[in-house]
Design a protein around this nucleic acid. Structure first.
Lengths: 126, 126
DNA sequence: GTAGCACCTGGAGTATACTCCAAGTCAAGA
DNA sequence: TCTTGACTTGGAGTATACTCCAGGTGCTAC
């Protein structure tokens, strides 16, 4: 699979795919004899995983560390697990904050829908 | 309330509070005769609202627009409501993506906990 | 063999959201 | 009165995550 195809498949620009490889967010992609990237199944799985984690706001730094540990083999299994647990906790914390904001947005929208967003309500609720 | 007090109260740096006011994320804060900010209840409510929305990832641009509409008075109530609805949809979409990532993280963590993250599992699941 | 196109690399540029800093003002205490 | 310390402004600097670009390579079709 060429970089153009992978780009289409995953909705990430070719520049982004090259960037992800350059910084180690995904392991080196196999090349053909001309040096052109030929994304195999493993590369595609990495792309998909990273797209998913990035969409959730997981920092590139943590993901790069995960890839590095992964590439060091089975000796890093505990470290990888710890990293995943840490990121899960961060994710949960962010989701809780978002739930609070969502509740607040819903409350404000309800005020607008009830036609209660009069001057008085504005002054009280902004 | 001075900027130092507001900073402590809301866990945002004085620089950030000044920045938020400068870009219009919060309306102008009242000043004393020396030109020093004196955060009143309304200013504090704005800070708290914006801290909440920013924590949820709502973009500054959208929040600035909301403040601008708010300051234009009741004629903008419909526009404000539309803006809140749009931001709620974006928030919901982000939360769904995060839920997917969370499920995936939990799945991977489970593999590690089951001691199944052997070479074979690694090759299959990365 | 040469035009065209997709790809390559290394490095510079951009967007967002802060964060820091220099130079100056002001009020209170020694 | 002078120092200290918190505050002011405008502007520059930083971190993160891309995004773009110049200059070059290599396959394919004419």
């Amino acid at each position: 699979m060429t970089i153009a195809e992978a780009s289409r498949q995953y909705g990430l620009s070719a520049d982004t795919l090259r960037y992800y490889e350059r910084i180690g967010l995904i392991p080196p992609v196999p090349r053909n004899k001309s040096g052109i990237r030929d994304y195999d199944q493993a590369s595609c799985q990495w792309i998909e995983l990273m797209k998913c984690m990035r969409a959730a706001g997981v920092q590139i730094e943590a993901l790069v560390e995960y890839v590095q540990l992964f590439r060091q083999g089975d000796a890093t299994i505990e470290a990888r697990k710890a990293l995943l647990l840490e990121q899960r906790d961060l994710l949960l914390a962010r989701m809780e904050e978002m739930q609070q904001s969502l509740d607040r947005l819903n409350y404000k929208i309800q005020l607008y829908e009830d036609g209660k967003m009069t001057r008085a309500a504005l002054d009280r609720d902004l």
